[in-house]
Amino acid sequence: MSNFQLGLIIAGALVLIVVVAYNAWTTHRNAPKRPRPAEADPAQEPVARHEPAFDGAVLTGAVLTGAGLTGAVLAGSGAEGEAEPGFDGHAVDLRDALDLPVPTAERRGGLDPLIDAIAPIVAEQQVSGDAALAALPPTRRAGSKPFAVEGFNDAAQQWETPQPGQRYLQFQAGVQLANRLGALNEIEFSEFVMKAQGFADAINAAPDFPDMLHEVARARELDQFASEHDAQLTFVLRARHAAWSPGYVQQNAARLGLVAGAIPGRLVLPAQGPGLPPVLTLTYDAQAAMSGDPEQSAVRDIVLSLDVAQVHRSQQPFARLREVAAALGEAMDGVLCDQNGTPLPAMTMEPIAADLEQLYDKLDSRELSAGSALARRLFS
């Protein structure tokens, strides 16, 4: 073998080694980022995590309508962050970082004339709570609107859902005037009357129904107000370069206090109080979350959502959304975008924050403060 032939063989071998190394480097660079082995994958932890009991609407897109918010999502209820928490490998509590006040205890709940049509029901004699419960209709809805019956507890001097062992003389039946499916209509009001009358007959009581046309008119006015003040903000965090694996997303989200929700591909930032809706929601491709080999699944977008009316302003949910978005963006090499993939500059956030403060004030003036029991019922 001549020196020339030997040189060609060596050169070919070197080229082959370079091509293989380059392909391996490219594959590694483009592979979905995985969680670090030193940190436990939240999805594999033995401790069960439960999402707060809230069946919120699915938030998608980045469309602007209604109340004038810009740079995020705003959807109606008609018919139908600069500072970043440190990453040192342990959980960061944004509530401590922001020094948030604790919301005051809820003072209004149950049926309320502000958002319900209410019919007083007076029994001829005291009725046991067990008998009242047995007399309730099998469903608690009139059409698409929640229906409820309450009894007045003389000892506690308050209205409550009938309780076994208690006795009641006065009851009230109510149907919600509006929700995100629209205003109460004549057919739904008639169904409410039938259900309340059936309950009254079963306990030998007499109901006093409000005027249907008046209540339907109130429902339309309330629905109009709700449609104009129902804000749902949605932002998309998009990978700049390499995609993310579901475990990588969960690991970084867990550092900020987000926990796995009941739906695959959904994580939530829990509220401070028990039983309250989550402050923020993070979602990504559910199919990737349910994949047989999730670490090989590629996630390029995650969605951060805030249902404004469901969270009390004292928890500063928009500030926390900005904190989470900024922290995840830095840690995961992502960029905050609208639904079309257009990056959102930091200057777009301040006008949104100002508009939200005005929205909170308008809800407060109507006694439907964001995060209150009445607001959570109306905007659901």
Rank of each mutant, 00 (worst) to 15 (best):
F147M: 02
R377C: 04
L256Y: 07
T27G: 02
L136A: 09
T342S: 08
R34V: 15
S291P: 03
Q163R: 14
A319L: 15
T234E: 10
E51S: 14
R140Y: 01
L169H: 05
V268A: 05
V299P: 00
A217M: 09
P264W: 07
Q166S: 11
I352F: 05
D99G: 10
V102G: 02
A148M: 08
T161W: 03
M332T: 14
V249G: 00
H229P: 06
R240Q: 14
F209M: 10
L94E: 05
Q176T: 08
P207M: 07
S314R: 13
M194N: 11
G86K: 10
G334S: 05
A326Q: 11
G86E: 13
E84D: 07
L237M: 09
A289K: 11
A40I: 12
I203D: 01
A202I: 11
G198P: 08
G261N: 09
E80N: 09
T139K: 12
A271G: 15
T65F: 10
D93S: 14
E124Q: 14
V149H: 01
L306Y: 11
G61C: 09
F87A: 13
L64D: 09
A262Q: 15
Q197C: 01
R313A: 12
E215P: 00
A67F: 14
Y284I: 03
Y360H: 14
D361P: 00
T60L: 14
L306K: 07
Q126W: 03
G56W: 07
A288D: 06
D88W: 03
D208C: 04
E160M: 09
A183V: 04
V303L: 15
D285M: 04
D99Y: 09
P246Q: 10
R376I: 08
G109I: 05
R218G: 02
V249Q: 02
M290E: 15
Q358R: 15
F199W: 03
M194R: 13
G109A: 15
V58E: 12
D301Y: 09
S2N: 15
G182Q: 02
Q232V: 05
E323M: 15
P164K: 06
P42E: 06
D293C: 06
I121N: 00
P52D: 08
D333P: 00
N252F: 03
M212F: 01
H214S: 08
P210N: 05
R180M: 04
E80V: 14
Q170G: 00
G78C: 00
H241S: 13
V249D: 02
V47H: 08
N340G: 12
V308G: 03
A105S: 15
A43W: 07
V20Y: 11
F147P: 01
Q163Y: 04
M290P: 04
S2L: 10
A131D: 13
P345Q: 01
A217G: 08
E188T: 05
V249W: 04
H312R: 12
S190L: 14
F209V: 09
L374Y: 07
A173F: 07
E188V: 07
L321N: 00
I203H: 02
F147D: 01
H50V: 12
D333I: 09
L184F: 10
Q316G: 06
V58M: 11
L169Q: 10
L256V: 04
P103W: 08
D93H: 11
V249L: 12
V20T: 14
L94Y: 06
